[in-house]
């Protein structure tokens, strides 16, 4: 997994609530057995018309947002399925940070496992960042994970909260499985205990 330390980039405004995983990556693109290559179908049904032509008014099709690395969006982003294809598609497109008033649980977790930072902020601050993002390609924001701040294009600084363990893993690009396997002894002793207490499992 790639580390996430500090990111300065274009933020795309997407003021919609309840953006679900079917919108992020429709299921016809889940047929792959690989993780890569999904970016071209990110938000497919909003981004392209029935003939596969770009819809010019969709935010990521507008010239100033084609290289967006940050997404500012509405509440309950990522609701719906557990498909990790959603963060894979975002990442493959180049999105490394998503700012919203709230996220669906599974999606939120999946982001961290793929080097994407989801930032939860109160609606008023999201609204402010949304305005900033609407300024276009010059509105480069800076997200500093270590300092836990977002700096707007006008230099305004907003702090955010992040789980300490998740932050650590993201900063170091750590692989969860490796970390957990270091605790193999704890898992084994749990298994021995459980086998005695609940042998039918």
């Amino acid at each position: 997994m790639d580390k996430f330390e500090k990111l300065t980039g274009v933020a795309a405004p997407m003021p919609m609530i309840n953006v679900d995983t079917d919108m992020i990556i429709p299921k016809q693109f889940l047929k792959t057995i690989k993780r890569s290559g999904l970016g071209k179908n990110l938000f497919d049904e909003m981004r392209f018309d029935d003939e596969g032509r770009e819809r010019p008014d969709f935010v990521l099709n507008r010239p100033q947002y084609r290289n967006a690395e940050i997404l500012v969006t509405g509440d309950n982003f990522g609701c719906g399925s557990s498909r990790e294809h959603a963060p894979w598609a975002l990442l493959d497109f180049g999105i490394r940070c998503i700012v919203a008033p709230g996220f669906a649980d599974i999606f939120f977790n999946n982001c961290f496992k793929n080097g994407i930072l989801p930032v939860v902020l109160p609606q008023a601050q999201v609204d402010m960042l949304m305005k900033d993002a609407e300024k276009g390609a010059n509105a480069r924001m800076t997200v500093d994970l270590d300092a836990q701040t977002i700096t707007t294009s006008d230099g305004e600084v907003i702090g955010f909260e992040v789980d300490a363990f998740k932050k650590h893993c993201l900063l170091e690009g750590l692989d969860d499985i490796g970390l957990t396997l270091e605790k193999a002894a704890a898992i084994e002793s749990f298994e021995a205990r459980a086998a005695a207490e609940r042998p039918w499992v």
Binding site: G80, S81, S82, R83, E84, P87, I106, N109, N110, K113, N114, D176, I177, T180, L181, A184, I187, E191
Partner: peptide, 30 residues
């Protein structure tokens, strides 16, 4: 790796959906 794993909660089992990275994590570590 499917969000409707919640179904199994009907039995009083703690059941939930996970993403593919977590699928790999559970396969490797239980």
């Amino acid at each position: 790796g499917d969000s409707h794993t919640a179904t199994h909660g009907a039995f009083g089992a703690l059941a939930h959906g996970i993403g593919t990275s977590e699928v790999e994590h559970v396969l490797a570590t239980q």
